[in-house]
Design a binder for these strands. Structure first.
Lengths: 305, 305
DNA sequence: TTAGGGCGATGCATTTTTTGCACCGCATTG
DNA sequence: CAATGCGGTGCAAAAAATGCATCGCCCTAA
């Protein structure tokens, strides 16, 4: 929409930190850009940027206005989606910020199912840790978030939540693989691989370990869940992960078992959106599909325990 | 804001039902307006109006877009208010849709109090019955509504509610004026003046009368509460009204007493806004003041019973 | 059946707005 | 103290919006 161009320019200036750079980014002369910004500020009644010797920076009024623009633009997209829905073929775009655990199995499946029914809808999936995911929602960069054990929950509206145990993942010939019940102390006594503190799994582990005056001291600490799964094949260590990101491979090389709930309480895997926001049609329906899928997953998983 | 002009034009066309009329309203040539509408429709990707031989009418897509515009414009006002708040002086405008009962005493007092503290804030007060008031909120025409016994309550978010008995108002020499407890049947047996069915007071009366197989058959039925209060001075009939709109005049000519709660249950006087909407600063703070005032009113009124 | 009026759409000249270019003043930096 | 990078401005060119005259259409009333 051309009439929002001024806002896009303001956003670009805010991002670039300088009018000249923003002008280049937006394929405009610095002078033209400058005058649009100044003109808008005059019309709006207040300056939006602090003028510094090295460039410009948003002032609080600018922050407020930029937030308004993002909300407006997002709502316009929703309307466009609804209108497209009205005219027949469903179109739209769904953006998701999610934990790594959803990437190998759950999300690809769900997206494929949705796209089979609605080929006009596109997706963007961004890996974000639990605090980043909430920021994404707040800035309208993502419509939905799926995170394990969210941090703040302000402006975060839960659509659906399912409990997830913390599972131990290891090679099938690992000594612990034959145990009926795996205790946390058993894991901490052997070489283990764990995510960094930013992740919910680690948070639960640290909390549980502290309760029994132990420490999580991983031989490898990583941000990649995939690395965890593959590393344990080499050193024959144990890794930690939530079951929705795990599936026993066909060759039987890897096994996963929940840690005893006596030691580590299950956390919540939460599907959510920004509080109070009306999602675009496509995102809202995909969220409903995800909620159903999560519920089904939970049901079937309970049966196998 | 000049960049929203196209939306204002769309709204004007929707209201006028014809481009030529709208063009006149907006001080523009019909051709210029026509091209802006067509241009926007092309950019937006869909027609917004049905073209009829007699003019144009919004289609569903247009309705959707217009609603988006209203939400956007209202949010922009809120931002402007917040920005003004940021720079010091509080400015803004508060629009209220309310029942007549609030007009003589309650609202004038409250507005005066607020404006004494914030002279930069202006008000608009519109008399609306309970169903109109809810529509006003939904179309962003009013920020706040104060109504007695609202109808639908969809998209209506209650900020504060207080119970209000239905009072009988009559001349001080009326036979009923000396009763300790006034029963509904006493009122229906004598000439009475009542509001029309659109109003909550009448709704409660009708409901209560039906329970005892009686009918409300007013000698004068009116939409004006003021007329009710003045008419009973002439014919010496009884009128019905809620206490917040009543105050015993200094000359003692008029008295009001609640109808027994055995006959007519108290209704709710409700202060509300559109569900989920973030109000402008001024409106939000005025709403808080109103809520407090209503609570105080209720407290002091309970004491006098 | 036809004439008239109101409707939205369009071609063209005019006006208004936006843009690009060149340049200024200023502050920071090596 | 020159060089660089910044926001801001005067002026002419380019682009967009507008007004005017006019078209074709459909409904209505004589």
């Amino acid at each position: 929409m051309r009439y929002l161009q001024t806002f896009r320019l303001i956003e670009a200036v805010a991002r670039a930190g300088s009018m000249r750079k923003a002008a280049e980014d937006m394929n405009l002369t610095a002078s033209a850009l400058n005058r649009r910004i100044n003109g808008f500020e005059e019309e709006f009644g207040t300056e939006l940027f602090e003028r510094l010797p090295s460039g410009v920076r948003l002032n609080p009024a600018g922050e407020l206005l930029l937030h308004h623009y993002r909300a407006t633009a997002s709502d316009l997209e929703r309307v466009q989606g609804q209108v497209a829905d009205l005219t027949g073929e469903r179109r739209g775009h769904v953006s998701i910020a999610c934990s790594q655990a959803l990437l190998p199995y759950f999300l690809p499946e769900q997206i494929a199912i949705y796209r089979a029914a609605h080929p006009g809808v596109t997706f963007s999936v961004n890996i974000r840790d639990r605090s980043q995911a909430e920021q994404e929602l707040a800035s309208y960069s993502s419509d939905l978030a799926i995170v394990f054990e969210p941090v703040y929950l302000v402006d975060f509206e839960v659509i659906h939540a399912i409990p997830q145990t913390v599972d131990v993942v290891m090679r099938s010939d690992h000594p612990l693989a034959s145990h009926d019940e795996i205790r946390l102390r058993d894991c901490l006594d052997v070489p283990h691989v764990a995510p960094t503190h930013r992740f919910g799994v680690r948070h639960l582990l640290d909390f549980a370990a502290r309760r029994s005056s132990r420490h999580v001291s991983p031989v490898v600490e990583t941000e990649s869940f995939e690395l965890i799964r593959h590393y344990v094949l080499h050193e024959n260590a144990v890794g930690f992960q939530i079951p929705i990101g795990l599936r026993t491979p066909g060759d039987g090389s890897l096994v996963s078992k929940p840690i005893s709930e006596r030691d580590v309480a299950p956390g919540n895997l939460i599907l959510g959106q920004m509080r109070g926001r009306t999602l675009p049609v496509a995102s809202a329906r995909f969220a409903m599909q995800l909620a159903t899928a999560l519920k089904d997953y939970q049901t079937s998983h309970e049966l196998t325990i």
